[in-house]
């Protein structure tokens, strides 16, 4: 179908507007992180930096607790991501392929759990973790993050599994492959884009999680970036340069993750399998 010039113009115009809405805040944060403090707080904001400095980054890395927060966040997010993927994959496969009593009811219940806002279970979870001695432990955050990311991850992984033709699994069954082999050797490579999506979702959910991190973690040395950042916003003054440099640095691990798993987002991976 060929678009008219007017249609193309409005389409590209619309896309540009959406792109600007998404890109501009990022640009403001990143460009602000290299501006001198007086330019940052200037009455008329500058889109193109007129000054250049790395002083905020120096302060961030040398004079703030940011490196500690960063490491804490990386540890919590990485473990949350790994456990989410490790649990979502077999769970999704079980819900997708295996026959067991109450399968559908259980599946719906798990999805229902996703509908509850975290704040509803905050107090009971705090009590629970306090009883088992997990308050102020990153383990508690990993458990919470995995628990909250799992329902959606299972749903997403199940959708990816549904795209694999059943005959491929049946061929593997006839070839004598046990269920775990089918999952690891046949299905996992085929749903790599799904695994990558779930991994990114789990990582970012954990990376940006604030509520539980602010309640379950007490000591400053164990804070993650979102909570640690909140401390940078002081009662009487805000160090905007430091905050923007921190926000910029906080994006980097996520960008690296995308770069690492991006190669798995290969379309047409099952080409040639059937037909």
């Amino acid at each position: 179908m060929k678009r008219s010039f007017g249609q193309s113009l409005s389409l590209y115009g619309g896309l540009l507007l959406i792109a600007l809405l998404i890109v501009l805040p990022f640009w403001w944060v990143i460009s602000g992180s290299i501006k001198l403090p007086r330019e940052i707080i200037q009455r008329v904001p500058t889109m193109i930096p007129e000054s250049f400095t790395l002083q905020h980054f120096e302060k961030l890395l040398q004079a703030s607790d940011f490196p500690v927060y960063l490491i804490n966040s990386i540890i919590v997010a990485s473990f949350s991501m790994a456990f989410t993927v490790l649990l979502a994959l077999p769970a999704a496969y079980a819900f997708f392929r295996m026959e067991f009593p109450g399968r559908n009811a259980l599946y719906r219940t798990i999805l229902l759990a996703y509908a509850f806002p975290g704040v509803v279970v905050l107090i009971p979870l705090y009590g629970l973790f306090a009883k088992v001695g997990l308050i102020d432990s990153p383990v508690a955050l990993v458990i919470v993050n995995v628990a909250f990311a799992l329902p959606f991850s299972i749903w997403m992984m199940r959708s990816f599994l549904a795209t694999i033709p059943r005959e491929i699994e049946e061929a593997a069954v006839v070839d004598g492959a046990p269920t775990t082999t089918i999952l690891v050797r046949i299905l996992m490579p085929l749903i790599a884009p799904g695994i990558a999506s779930v991994a990114i979702f789990a990582f970012i959910s954990s990376w940006t999680e604030y509520l539980f991190a602010s309640v379950l973690i007490v000591s400053d040395a164990r804070r993650t970036i979102p909570v640690g950042f909140a401390g940078i916003i002081g009662q009487y003054q805000i160090d905007w340069g430091l905050l923007l440099a921190g926000a910029t640095a906080a994006i980097i691990p996520v960008v690296i993750l995308f770069a690492l798993v991006g190669r798995w987002f290969v379309s047409g991976l099952t080409d040639g399998a059937v037909k």
């Binding site: 033709p165 005959e167 049946e170 070839d175 991976l269 080409d271 040639g272 399998a273």
Partner: peptide, 20 residues
């Protein structure tokens, strides 16, 4: 018996090859 222990091999309509 399990399919693998029946002493059969099957060719599917859709080939069902392992694409990777």
């Amino acid at each position: 018996e399990d399919p693998a222990k029946r002493g059969i091999a099957m060719v599917f309509q859709t080939y069902a090859l392992y694409p990777h």
